[in-house]
Design a protein around this nucleic acid. Structure first.
Lengths: 245, 245
DNA sequence: CGAGCCGTTGAGGGGATTCAAGCTCAGTGG
DNA sequence: CCACTGAGCTTGAATCCCCTCAACGGCTCG
């Protein structure tokens, strides 16, 4: 998918944010990828690009929201508190994912959204999507694709991260973190043990024991705090053995 | 939300399926609830209302689908096979829910969909939604609501049915089954022990032990095969004690 | 009646939790 | 400078919940 270069003569008249969107390396993967330069020009003014530090909250569950967000870089986690009063992380989102989509329906946010790493976002107000929906039906299709991707992520979470032995779940989490935010060299964000527990339903002690074991086995090289390097081959091998034995 | 009565003089000229849709008790909750009589008249011809017996498969994971379905009555389960080769049930759908929505994006079905009970559906071809999308923007909004509901169901599944002790998960499942397909008297569909295992990640033996215990405690009255009556008060009380102790 | 499926129950073992102690490290203030 | 503190992590020992393996009963169906 080619992203057309904007002619120079157009640029002086172009809003800075529109230029930023045009140049955005995510554009082909992003919600507004279907828009041309004119389309971007029309919407530029309302789009902000906020940043959050690790641990900061983007929004809370139950809040009435007026915007959706695209993740430009970083990882977001979605938390909720169970009926039993325990904190549970139900999903992660990374680069290119759309979050807070329920705001488009004027529904309150379903979960609490928190930055796991330094986070860069695009903030897109609801009224913008509403207005654009009529003019650009292709964008609605993009939107529905985002919804389906989120559903797919959540169902995969159920299938892969909530079943089986603790060690298998943790290996699967490492795999997911690698494909979500890992770089070429296998450098990943490694959650705090308590957050691993909230994701995989285990105690911090169990999480710690398994992480330590994987470190001793060479699957994981810890780079405290909050980072690690995974040996992808060793990870695959460990998963194979896990599923076999 | 009122569903307008169709004048009698209109009916002889009306396609039988359009009459059925108009009279459908689900209409206000269904995808085409926003359409008026004329709108229904236009789309009637392509809508079928298939029925499936318990255990029959609606579609398989990976298949290319050309239709979405609305559940008129019964319960559907979504299964997939994990990377480790185990069968996992990741979500349930009931009356009023939309299933197979990924077909609208021309994506293959994500999961296998299987009837848990006798099932009545509305089959809505993709081309119909495509055509209607332009004419009836309100319907796209309905569609996005369905997507969000499915996402919400999946995230709730993660939060409530995959964490905590086996007994708590099973109690929560009974609660979910009651609100999904239960009648006034607490009559519910009770899955086979193997399916309980695939939902809650436990063995059939553990499922059986807990079901038996709940029967002895009076929470559950078994009505074999595949049915039970829940004592809602006792269920609530059992959950309270579970979360307390 | 025997075969097969489904469900139930028991006994033993293993993996995760619980309870507890000690470690590292950053921030604070004497 | 260094003890002090608290948060996060690690490790050990004992307990318990759930899994594994096994046997058996009810039911349907050929």
């Amino acid at each position: 998918m080619l992203t057309p270069v904007i002619p120079l003569y157009l640029q002086p008249a172009t809003h800075p944010q529109a230029r930023a969107c045009s140049a955005c390396e995510l554009r082909s993967r992003a919600l507004f990828g279907v828009l041309d330069a004119d389309g971007l020009q029309r919407i530029h003014a309302d789009i902000a690009t906020p940043s959050l530090a690790e641990g900061e909250r983007l929004y809370g569950g139950g809040e009435a929201g007026a915007a959706v967000y695209t993740v430009r870089s970083g990882i977001v986690r979605f938390e909720r508190v169970t009926a039993g009063g325990h904190r549970r992380i139900v999903r992660l989102a990374g680069r290119g994912d759309l979050i807070g989509q329920e705001a488009l329906l004027q529904w309150p946010y379903a979960d609490e959204a928190i930055a796991c790493t330094p986070l860069q976002l695009c903030r897109i107000p609801r009224h913008l999507i509403d207005a654009l929906g009529d003019a650009e039906p292709q964008m609605l299709r993009e939107l529905m694709q985002r919804w389906q991707r989120a559903l797919e992520a959540s169902e995969s979470w159920v299938a892969e991260l909530t079943a089986g032995a603790a060690r298998r779940r943790l290996l699967k989490l490492l795999q997911a973190l690698d494909s979500l935010g890992g770089d070429d060299e296998g450098l990943i964000w490694l959650p705090r043990r308590e957050d691993i527990g909230a994701m995989l339903d285990m105690t911090i002690e169990t999480a710690s024991r398994i992480v330590s074991a994987l470190r001793r086995e060479g699957v994981l090289e810890l780079l405290p705090p909050r980072a690690a390097r995974v040996d992808r081959e060793a990870l695959q091998a460990a998963l194979q053995r896990q599923d076999a034995g």
